[in-house]
């Protein structure tokens, strides 16, 4: 049975995890600590999550702290999650952006991509557009804080359970091949995505400038001030007409003026408009 974490240990874990990932852990999230950290405690031969936290604090064990950060920030995902953003991309956002830059290549960023489902959903969407005669020249950059989830993403191997949530069966057989008990994303789709370890709290400039940023179900884990900062730094890495997609329950409204809502997605606010309204 779980013994409660000492206050000093909880405060330590919360502070260190926040510094590394932006994730805000409040006392009411103790269930999350318990379920996510118990496997690490077991692997480290520690009796409980409380002992794991104490060990990390007393030893200032960087490796343990990163493992805990990784476990706490990894979230469940599935293919074409929420559907609507993908329909908007296919029917409105991508055609519009493409029309505005007839010869240009679109750069799409899947931020906090997790185990690859979001990035591969984007790639499949582009591939289907191509097959339908609407060729799109695009590059997908997919980043996550966790090397562990990126390893899974790069392998492109999914269980039968994973490929049955969100993926229509025709999409499955068009874009995957069966390998033993697993389903592997086609090389053609995998080649469209570049996976890279990246922390949203770091300097974003090395990633370059994007036309579309998909950053879903991440901001809600941040403190309000961090949310604003991250949104503004994302805006700085976007083209003037760039589009941002957030999670179904997230919004830029009341958080940052760097974006304007446009029915299901957010458009980067033109810098001159920001200056004008500030004047």
């Amino acid at each position: 049975m779980a013994t409660a974490m000492a206050d000093a240990d909880f405060a330590f874990v919360a502070r260190e995890v926040k510094a590394r990932s932006g994730l805000v852990l409040t006392a009411d999230k103790s269930y999350l600590l318990e379920t996510r950290l118990a496997p690490i405690a077991r692997k480290e031969s520690l009796a409980s999550v409380a002992e794991l936290a104490a060990a990390a604090r007393l030893r200032r064990d960087e490796r343990l702290i990163w493992q805990m950060t990784d476990a706490l920030t990894t979230n469940e995902t599935h293919f074409f999650r929420d559907r609507k953003p993908f329909a908007l991309l296919r029917d409105r956002i991508i055609p519009e952006l493409q029309q505005a830059r007839p010869a240009g290549r679109l750069r799409i960023w899947s931020a906090a991509t997790s185990t690859g489902q979001e990035a591969f959903s984007l790639a499949m969407l582009l591939d289907d557009l191509r097959a339908g005669g609407r060729g799109v020249d695009a590059e997908i950059v997919a980043t996550d804080l966790s090397e562990r989830v990126l390893e899974k993403a790069r392998a492109g191997l999914y269980t039968q359970f994973e490929v049955q949530r969100g993926l229509p069966v025709r999409t499955l057989i068009r874009h995957f091949e069966k390998v033993g008990e697993f389903w592997r994303i086609a090389d053609r789709i995998r080649a469209m995505v570049r996976f890279q370890r990246f922390n949203l709290l770091d300097d974003l400039a090395p990633l370059g400038v994007f036309d579309v940023v998909v950053c879903r179900n991440v901001l809600s884990y941040f403190a309000p001030e961090t949310r604003r900062q991250v949104l503004e730094r994302i805006a700085a890495q976007m083209t003037d007409d760039g589009v941002l997609l957030l999670g179904a329950t997230e919004s830029t409204v009341g958080v940052s003026d760097a974006f304007v809502p446009e029915g299901g997605y957010y458009r980067r606010t033109l810098v001159r408009e920001q200056t004008a309204s500030a004047a």
């Binding site: 039968q160 359970f161 049955q164 949530r165 969100g166 229509p168 069966v169 499955l172 057989i173 069966k178």
Partner: peptide, 30 residues
């Protein structure tokens, strides 16, 4: 749960395909 069976089902007019075992989430999603 192999591609041949799935393709045969679609060709025969199936609209979707669930590979057992399934749960409520999968059934609803499909």
């Amino acid at each position: 749960n192999d591609v041949e069976h799935i393709s045969e089902a679609i060709k025969a007019g199936a609209n979707e395909y669930i590979m057992k075992p399934f749960d409520g989430d999968i059934l609803q999603s499909k």
